[in-house]
């Protein structure tokens, strides 16, 4: 028994259930997040009547593509037991840098790789501080956050418009069957691709499994002879690259870069990842869960704008939801450790 509250006692079902819980206990928080999402969808549909439309659901992905990309990167870091507070600022910095390079006439084929590389470099810097100098992830990524925010302002104090057709194409193109039906933008496709690649990396590569092992017990992972140092550095690099990519997507989304972009986004990202069922202590969680977390976040925002209420309610609701999830996780952990 895993100590998960199994109340179903039917003879035939209980064996299978028990087996499920013994094998797949870490999926329970993800399922809980999914349940919340579905309840929200149904509730919103019942209340507004026009919520579950292809247009609304499609724009959910469109509006939150950057957050989804950030959340995937954050999942890698949190799974190792770390945290990356720099993602919002790195997104802003790479966005600013990219916009200014484009303004200076550099081709997009150079600018986008540069943005990704800068993100990777910021991630690597955090990783090196964490891994080689025993700096706590919180502080190391905090320093990177400050640095990136300052650098963003150094590029320019005001916003820079982006007129490059390739970047704008990412956002403005709507791949759509018919007017009013489902649609997806290249940014949305990009985000989905990131989710798929992230999920594959975590589930089907030694790199991914080593991340789980480190989050479960770093000392053990080291003694098992797994490449702990390399893997942890890479996790932060993945998060950095994702932040760089989010910079591209967010720039496309707003059509301009502003150095104050993404303030507080690191918190939204962490909240989405946690709501998606990833334990902050590391070792348990899924990219798919983070995606559900982002969708929950996006739906709350949409519902609140449907209500015409203050957007400040978004943060309050997210805070409350985060609390709910953390308390539930806490109960689950307490129960399984009492076993």
């Amino acid at each position: 028994m895993t100590g998960i509250p199994v109340t179903v006692e039917r003879a035939s079902a209980s064996g299978a259930l028990r087996r499920f819980f013994s094998r797949r206990a870490s999926w329970i928080p993800v399922l809980a997040a999914l349940a919340i999402l579905i309840v929200m969808f149904i509730g919103a549909q019942a209340y507004f009547g026009n919520f579950l439309t292809p247009r609304v659901i499609s724009s959910l992905l469109l509006d939150n593509a950057y957050l989804l990309i950030l959340a995937v990167g954050m999942t890698f870091v949190i799974l190792t037991g770390g945290i990356d507070l720099s993602v919002g600022a790195v997104m802003a910095f790479t966005g600013m840098l990219g916009a200014s390079l484009l303004r200076d006439g550099l081709p997009v084929g150079v600018v986008v790789p540069v943005m990704l590389l800068i993100g990777a470099a910021m991630g690597l810097a955090v990783g090196i501080m964490v891994q080689y100098f025993d700096v706590q992830p919180f502080i190391a990524s905090l320093a990177a956050m400050f640095a990136a925010r300052g650098l963003a302002f150094m590029v320019s104090l005001s916003s820079i418009r982006v007129e490059d057709p390739a970047i704008l194409w990412l956002q403005s193109t709507r791949i759509q069957a018919a007017p009013g039906s489902w649609f997806i933008t290249p940014t949305g496709i990009l985000a989905i691709l990131v989710v798929i690649v992230g999920a594959l990396l975590l589930a089907y590569t030694r790199f991914g499994r080593t991340i789980y092992a480190i989050g479960g017990n770093e000392q053990s992972a080291r003694l098992m002879g797994l490449p702990v140092v390399r893997t942890k550095l890479l996790a932060y690099v993945v998060s950095g690259v994702c932040a760089g990519l989010a910079g591209v997507v967010f720039t496309a989304y707003t059509g301009a870069s502003y150095p104050l972009n993404g303030i507080g986004t690191e918190l939204d990202t962490i909240a989405a990842v946690v709501i998606g069922g990833t334990l902050l202590t590391g070792g348990s969680g899924y990219v798919l869960g983070s995606m559900i977390g982002v969708l929950v976040y996006g739906s709350i925002k949409t519902v609140i704008s449907f209500l015409g209420a203050e957007q400040s309610w978004t943060r309050i609701t997210i805070g409350a939801l985060l609390l709910l999830f953390v308390v539930v996780q806490r109960i689950i952990v307490a129960r399984s450790s009492r076993r």
Partner: peptide, 13 residues
């Protein structure tokens, strides 16, 4: 971190 993150998110709201 999480316990106080809740209020950090919700407080400004």
């Amino acid at each position: 971190i999480i316990a106080t993150l809740v209020l950090m998110l919700a407080g400004r709201g």
